[in-house]
């Protein structure tokens, strides 16, 4: 297809689409914010919001994040209350946190002094370790912006999600912070020992499955990945097999691979690859995973 063909085709879309897009819009000036912080302060202020209506709120957040009803599977009583961090420039809210046994997910929203979301793309996070060392994008984890796009969710601030991987974390006294906002320090909560399903066919290949992602570890880069790091180019089909014999194909939101290294930075010969789910999964009845045609039973 030629680019001209596509631009010409777009030129021929229905009249109502053309007319509607050109209509003046009523811009929402007031965005949803937690009504707890009044005055701006030079130093960051941290408050914990009361727990009233928390369960419903968190359900809604997780629904919007995962785009499914998966939030129903989370025990709301275990989710912490939102915590608001305020500087003179930005209000940043840790809306909720979830532990999946391998990672801790932070759902974070932010608003500037006018109530508008700051440019998240410029707000790179770091994990600050107890010894003062820094790690970009969490400890071996990653972050990304999430922008609810439909009419309903667009009324709320944008969300950042941060997955902090426990596997690579050696100290327990670290926190997230953001470029330009050094006073904001979000403590990374300790691991909660949430169960994770492990699958293996007896070889050194192990797959670990949580509600957020499927993680591979083994001595070879799994099929589809270009060694030694990067994103998959041709992913194998991945299926969950349930106790009743039904199967569900996994579709990842993102994926990546790292070559594990020891404390001196030398390769260990082990690879770790992740496929983060597009939806929040209940893994309790999964008895096996099938990856590229090979079945790995649950250990």
């Amino acid at each position: 297809m030629k680019l001209d063909t596509l631009t010409d085709a777009i030129g021929m879309i229905d009249d109502d689409l053309i007319v509607n897009a050109a209509k003046p819009r009523k811009i929402r000036q007031k965005r949803h914010r937690l009504p707890v912080i009044a005055a701006a302060a030079a130093a960051a202020v941290c408050l914990t919001v009361g727990a009233s209506a928390l369960a419903a709120r968190n359900t809604h957040l997780l629904d919007s994040f995962f785009g499914n009803e998966g939030a129903d599977q989370v025990s709301m009583a275990e989710l912490p209350a939102p915590v608001v961090y305020e500087t003179g420039d930005v209000t940043l809210t840790v809306e909720t946190e979830i532990d999946d046994g391998m990672n801790r997910l932070y759902l974070i929203s932010a608003a500037d002094r006018n109530g508008n979301p700051p440019d998240f793309m410029d707000m790179m996070s770091k994990t600050v370790h107890a010894d003062g060392s820094l790690t970009q994008f969490g400890t071996g984890g990653f972050g990304f912006g999430y922008h609810p796009a439909d009419e309903e969710t667009a009324a709320r601030p944008e969300y950042l999600a941060y997955f902090v991987e426990y596997a690579d974390r050696e100290d327990s006294d670290c926190y997230l912070t953001f470029r330009g906002f050094p006073d904001i320090r979000i403590p990374i909560q300790p691991e909660q020992n949430t169960p994770v399903a492990e699958f293996s066919d007896g070889s050194d290949t192990v797959y670990r499955l949580s509600c957020f992602e499927l993680v591979y570890t083994g001595t070879e880069a799994p099929a589809g990945f270009q060694e030694p790091v990067g994103e998959p180019v041709n992913e194998p089909e991945r299926w969950l097999i349930y106790a009743d014999g039904t199967k569900k194909q996994l579709d990842n939101q993102s994926a990546g691979i790292t070559e594990l290294r020891d404390e001196n930075g030398n390769p260990t010969g082990q690879y770790r690859a992740y496929y983060s789910h597009k939806e929040y999964l209940d893994i309790s009845d999964v008895t096996a995973v099938e990856i590229g045609g090979t079945v790995y039973p649950r250990k």
Binding site: M1, T5, L6, D8, A9, I10, G11, M12, I13, D14, L17
Partner: peptide, 11 residues
Amino acid sequence: IEAKELALRIN
């Protein structure tokens, strides 16, 4: 593929 047909899909 004609742009017209493509326009239908894009619609």
